[in-house]
Design a protein around this nucleic acid. Structure first.
Lengths: 112, 112
DNA sequence: ACACAGGATGACTACATAATTATATTCTCA
DNA sequence: TGAGAATATAATTATGTAGTCATCCTGTGT
C-alpha cells in the first residue's frame, strides 16, 4: 500500500471486497472457477433462485469480475478478473493456518 | 479452493471479506500497517469520531484482525492477522494493472 | 403463429450495519 | 478527592442490499 490513500481509492478497494463479502456470490464465483457456465447451470449448482443468480451475475459483471457471452437463448458467464483466485486463496490459506494453529494448541492441552 | 465448499466455510470467508469492505476500516488498518497506534492517534489520523473508531476496532478485534494492548489509560491496537497485507496488496495490484491496461489502450487511441 | 424455455428487471420486504449522540467507565494528575 | 482525558458502549437513525415475486423480453422448436 502507498503512504497516502485517497478517499476514492479506499472506496474502490472496499467495493471490491464488498463484492466478495456475500456467500452466494462466492458460491457462484467458485462454480465459475471450474469454467464458463450458463445461468441455469449456476442456478442448479447453487440452489438459488434464477432471479437471484441473475442479479448477482449482473452485479459482478458491472464491476468486471465476470464476463458474459450470449449464444442463442443462453447466457454464459466466466471469470473476468483473475485476481479473485489470488485473493480467495490467500484468505482460505489464512483460515486454514489459523485453524491448524488452534488445533495444535488443543493438542498441547490434550497431551499435557 | 476445494471442490466442495460448505455453507459454513463460505460464510466464514464472506465474513472476512466483509470486514475489509468498509473504507473506514481499511483506513484504520492502513494506519496500523505503520505500527501499533492508540485510539486517539487513529481518531486523528482517520478524521472519524472516537466512538466510530472504537466500534470499528472492536469489530476488527472480535474477528481477530487486530490486537489490543492496554497501558494505563490508553489502548494500543496493532495488526493481528498478517493475511491482510497479502490480500490488500493483491487487490491493489489488480487495480493498478487494470488501470495501466486502460491507460495503454487510451495511448493507442491517441497515437493512432 | 404459438407455446415454452432461458434470462433480465422492477417493486417490494426484511435485515444488516455505519455513523451519531449521549453516557458510562477507568485511569492520571494536581 | 476532584477534574479531566482516553476509551467503551448503549440506543437510535439512516442507508444499503440480499432475496422473492411477478413480469417482461428474446430466442427456439413445432
Amino acid at each position: 500500500m502507498q503512504e497516502v490513500m485517497s478517499d476514492e481509492m479506499l472506496e474502490l478497494i472496499a467495493q471490491r471486497f464488498r463484492l466478495l463479502s456475500d456467500p452466494m456470490r462466492l458460491r457462484i464465483l467458485h462454480q465459475l472457477q471450474g469454467g464458463e457456465k450458463s445461468v441455469s447451470e449456476l442456478v442448479e449448482a447453487t440452489g438459488a433462485s434464477q432471479p437471484n443468480v441473475s442479479k448477482h451475475l449482473s452485479t459482478l459483471r458491472t464491476h468486471g469480475l465476470v464476463r458474459r457471452r450470449q449464444e442463442g437463448n443462453m447466457a454464459y458467464f466466466s471469470i473476468g478478473a483473475p485476481f479473485i483466485f489470488d485473493v480467495c486463496n490467500t484468505v482460505c490459506d489464512s483460515m486454514k493456518s489459523e485453524w491448524e494453529q488452534r488445533n495444535s494448541l488443543l493438542g498441547q492441552f490434550n497431551n499435557a
